[in-house]
């Protein structure tokens, strides 16, 4: 079909790839599910509140149902006992979905090298971005968030 643009010269247009447009939109509409189990939660709250303000990155609205969330923020130590719950929450999220490991306990288990602790959540669910630190500074979290945005923008968009 041929499109005649001559009739609407005042409405400009640009051509792009669909993947780029969808990726651009998705990177700024991150609805996160905070799975907070430990002290990193304080740092998560500090990052989310007005001073550092994750809303600048379009990630300001946490959803408290995994079915409404795109990004799973795993914040704090994951014990062997809670690990099945984390898997259950992850499985309830609709695709496309991403996972952020927030803090060193979620990345590797941290210094909890014992019978009770999962040594990194990547033993049980896939992870997109690792944010180390005990706890990570808000700046580190924001850098992780921007890395996630870049990853979301660049990937093949499932529609």
């Amino acid at each position: 079909m041929e499109v005649d643009f001559k009739g609407t010269p005042e409405l400009g247009f640009f051509a792009s790839r669909l993947d780029d447009v969808v990726g651009w939109a998705r990177q700024y509409s991150i609805f996160q599910y905070p799975f907070v189990t430990a002290c990193c939660g304080m740092e998560y709250m500090a990052t989310a509140c007005a001073h550092y303000d994750v809303d600048r990155f379009g990630a300001g609205l946490p959803r408290f149902s995994p079915r409404q969330a795109d990004v799973l923020f795993v914040v704090g130590t994951i014990s062997q006992k809670i690990a099945p719950v984390l898997v259950n929450v992850y499985q309830q999220m609709c695709a496309p979905k991403w996972v952020v490991a927030f803090g060193v306990c979620t990345c590797t288990g941290g210094f909890y090298d014992n019978y009770a602790t999962v040594r990194g959540i990547d033993h049980v669910i896939p992870v997109d971005v690792y944010i180390p630190g005990c706890p990570p500074r808000p700046e580190t979290v924001l850098q992780g968030l921007m890395m996630l945005q870049e990853k979301i923008r660049k990937e093949k968009q499932e529609l």
């Binding site: 062997q80 006992k81 690990a83 099945p84 898997v87 090298d113 014992n114 019978y115 999962v118 040594r119 033993h123 049980v124």
Partner: peptide, 10 residues
């Protein structure tokens, strides 16, 4: 000291 009994995962 290093014995784990995971419910999920390896």
């Amino acid at each position: 000291i290093d014995k784990r009994q995971p419910l999920v995962g390896p």
